[in-house]
Design a protein around this nucleic acid. Structure first.
Lengths: 248, 248
DNA sequence: CGATGCCTTGACCAACCTCAAGTGGCGTGG
DNA sequence: CCACGCCACTTGAGGTTGGTCAAGGCATCG
């Protein structure tokens, strides 16, 4: 596996946080399911854990693969997506540090997971992880919390996909990313977009062209600046929030 | 609370199953979270349970309400929906017998729950229910399974909302309902639609008119029959399945 | 029997998609 | 070092799909 220079900095790198090797030093532990375990218990987790590094172009797993492993994102961003027979794609979400993958599996993965930046991943055998859940109820409880949070996000995304206009979709998307930044103690405003326009389009149910035009529109409205195509300055946060809520 | 003649038969009534009063006699117990508990344990559940009956027009809870209760659907169908400021609505799902409500709550309900038929509901105090989850790990595990299933369904719905055409949306919707029927031991084909065209439209990200036109189109294609506007006969199941998958 | 609500159908229109061309950054190779 | 190709993004022109607006059918209900 070749070491690759990242196309875009991942949140950890941006914050000067090194990739974790040991759970004891892991910066995302508190956010991840692992936060449910104390140092003694986490040794058990460590024993069934393998650390992976993947670069864009590689794939963690494909929709339909046998779901015999579960994962924790330590660093970087992944794209979760589903395909129709003719190639139409829906990105169901972006997995960020602290996110758990493999939850939605009932035998096979229900979506593909591909890095959009260099990523660091903790991998577990699904069966062994389930055993550990049986032993540590707090771990299972944490998993339920994760699932609940994802469900809330999924419902919000349904509202976006079904009923919002392109400009409302992009505004909501930017705010989501901005809120993720602040949750990590990073500034709200220069929002970094590690993913391509195609990824954004497939996430929001639009075409590349409409995404691009909508960014231009937001810029001409004075709501954002676009110093680079993957960096967005939120110039009028209130206006963006109104747009995201559909408040005209 | 007046007893109301149901506009549409609910699955239990259609199958000749009486509304449950006692958990021991409940027909949905195995499908619901309650299935995790044996007769002795379920007595604890019974003690914190209240049985409700609601008719269309009444509301179980509104998006934004304090989420101090959780629910189990015993009979009937509810509509779960979210609103934008200007009244645009997204139906995020329909809750059927055996479904658990209140999972997605983080302090407040993230969507409204309104009956589309007469419904029978088991209500629990959220805190007491959580306590019970702490006591019975199997109950919590069952909740996690429910959450996982809902998450899988939500991802599938995102694909539908973001990337499918109206005819593909309706085809997918009919198949979903048909599969629910067979899961209950009912025939796959005459699919009953307890909800209005408006509900279907808001569920699939369409307008009433497009829903109506698309049913007509499917009928003229010979894929379905529409003896009544709320009863659909699947005439060419294979064709419908191909449409649902986007296979032209 | 009229009023109401829900569904269907038709005509029209605009938003978004499709197709196409143009720009700019970046890496490669002459 | 520059030329070139490649790729991603942007922008423009035009077309199609699905939305909007409006009318009509049909059942239920008072």
């Amino acid at each position: 596996m070749a070491t690759v220079v990242p196309l875009f900095p991942n949140p950890c790198a941006a914050a000067g946080i090194p990739d974790p090797i040991l759970c004891e030093e892991c910066q995302v532990r508190d956010l991840a399911v692992c936060g449910a375990l104390d140092d003694g218990e986490i040794a058990h987790l460590n024993r069934i854990m393998t650390h992976l590094r993947l670069a864009p172009g590689q794939t963690l797993f494909y929709e339909g693969d046998e779901a015999d492993r579960v994962f924790n994102v330590a660093t970087g961003t992944l794209r979760l997506s589903k395909l129709l027979a003719d190639g139409r794609r829906q990105v169901t979400g972006f997995a960020l540090p602290g996110d758990f993958l493999g939850l939605a599996a009932d035998g096979t993965y229900t979506c593909s997971a591909e890095p959009v930046t260099d990523v660091g991943i903790c991998r577990f055998d699904a069966r062994k992880f389930a055993d550990l859940c049986g032993r540590y109820p707090d771990l299972e409880r944490r998993l339920l919390e994760k699932a609940r949070d994802e469900l809330v996000a999924a419902q919000e995304q349904m509202l976006l996909l079904g009923r919002k206009t392109p400009i409302e979709k992009i505004a909501s998307f930017l705010l989501d990313l901005s809120r993720h930044s602040t949750a990590w103690g990073l500034p709200a405003s220069p929002v970094l977009l590690p993913m391509s326009r195609a990824d954004i389009a497939d996430y929001l149910g639009l075409t590349i062209e409409t995404v691009s035009r909508t960014f231009t529109k937001l810029r001409s409205l004075g709501a954002i600046e676009l110093p680079e195509s993957h960096r967005v300055v939120l110039r009028d946060q209130q206006h963006i929030e109104n747009l995201a809520l559909g408040d005209v």
